[in-house]
Computed example of a mutant assay.
Amino acid sequence: MQYRTLGRTGWQVSTISFGAWAIGGTWGDVDDAESMGALHQALDLGVNFFDTADVYGDGRSERLLARLRKERSEPFYIATKAGRRLSPHVAEGYNRQNLRAFVERSLSNLNVEALDLLQLHCPPTPVYYMPEVFGVLDELQQEGKLRHYGVSVEKVEEALKAIEFPGVQSVQIIYNILRQRPADLLFEQTQKKGVGILARLPLSSGLLSGKMTAQTAFAADDHRQFNRQGEQFDKGETFSGLDYAKGLAAVEALRPLVPAGMTMAQFALRWLTMHPAVTCAIPGGKRAAQVADNVSAADLPALTPEQMQAVQTVYEQHAKPWVHQGW
């Protein structure tokens, strides 16, 4: 495993970490015993950073991570998110009363006195123009309710605005082979300000595993079935915002680039960590075998300039026209 410094926290976090959305729900059937096996496997392989949210399974994901902390002695970091419990999900809801309530609930779910890292959970764009919201986070940090805070965003614009606030330690954003815009300007700015990048959906909702086909069926409660057009939340959260058929075509164009002995998922994760601004990738995993496959990407050789250029060509031909300006 490789490790990089997260923002200005001083934390050394695993470059391949663990995204805990899938073990909470909305990714098809999930079994808690299997999920715990995946979490233990991650720790065994050197993962020390886990990303969750209070809405993943209505707290289920957070509670599983609390179990992990109880069952293991080695230290690790848990990042959670707050805000998506609001209904309606509007900027005005990001007020002191609601944020405090969300934090208290996560503290209870995780069975801790202080959250390691709290992230605003893809709030509406106006929130980033509301200094009072970040003032509440400063208060909570001063009170010892959270150690650090950051943001999870949908758009590059939101990230650029968020890092103007001095307390922001991290930006979580979709970044993968099929969604490359963050590397245009954002990464340069986060490096200048000492802000970490947590790359979510690094495998583009599983597309970049190379295992999906036009015949792949998704469960009714899987967002890859019910959110393809953004019916429940931002369209960009599902297959990077790409039409499924276009995404499959992009994967076929990538397939010849994957070296022998490497899975496409490993190739996609190693591509992502080639950028020095990326602190870590946070692929999801519901099973121990998935985790082992993903984590092994951390120690693979660097991709060559020729491989990087070939990936860029695939992006420009198969994804950029449809996603680059969207987020």
Rank of each mutant, 00 (worst) to 15 (best):
R63G: 10
L65N: 02
L65R: 06
L65W: 10
R67G: 04
L68H: 09
L68V: 08
R69T: 11
K70D: 14
K70S: 15
E71D: 15
S73D: 15
E74M: 06
E74V: 10
I78K: 07
I78C: 02
T80L: 09
K81R: 10
A82L: 07
A82R: 04
G83R: 10
R85Y: 11
S87H: 15
P88F: 06
H89M: 10
V90L: 14
V90I: 14
V90Y: 12
E92R: 15
Y94G: 02
N98H: 15
N98D: 11
N98V: 01
L99I: 12
L99C: 03
R100L: 00
R100Q: 07
A101M: 11
A101H: 07
F102T: 04
E104T: 05
E104H: 12
E104P: 03
E104F: 04
R105D: 11
L107N: 05
S108D: 14
S108R: 14
S108P: 00
S108E: 13
S108H: 14
N111Q: 15
N111P: 00
N111Y: 00
V112N: 02
L115G: 00
D116S: 00
D116Q: 10
L117Q: 02
L117D: 04
L117E: 03
L118I: 03
Q119M: 13
Q119D: 09
L120F: 13
H121K: 12
P124K: 14
P124D: 06
P124W: 05
T125F: 15
P126W: 08
V127I: 09
V127K: 08
Y128C: 02
P131N: 11
P131I: 05
P131R: 12
P131M: 10
E132A: 07
V133S: 06
F134L: 04
F134S: 06
F134E: 03
F134W: 12
F134Q: 03
G135Q: 13
L137K: 06
D138Q: 13
D138A: 08
L140T: 07
L140F: 08
L140S: 01
Q141G: 02
Q142D: 14
Q142N: 09
E143G: 09
E143S: 08
G144C: 02
G144W: 08
G144H: 04
G144F: 03
L146A: 05
L146N: 06
R147T: 04
H148N: 14
Y149S: 12
G150P: 12
V151G: 06
S152R: 11
S152L: 11
V153T: 14
V153S: 12
V153F: 01
E154Q: 13
E154N: 13
K155Y: 04
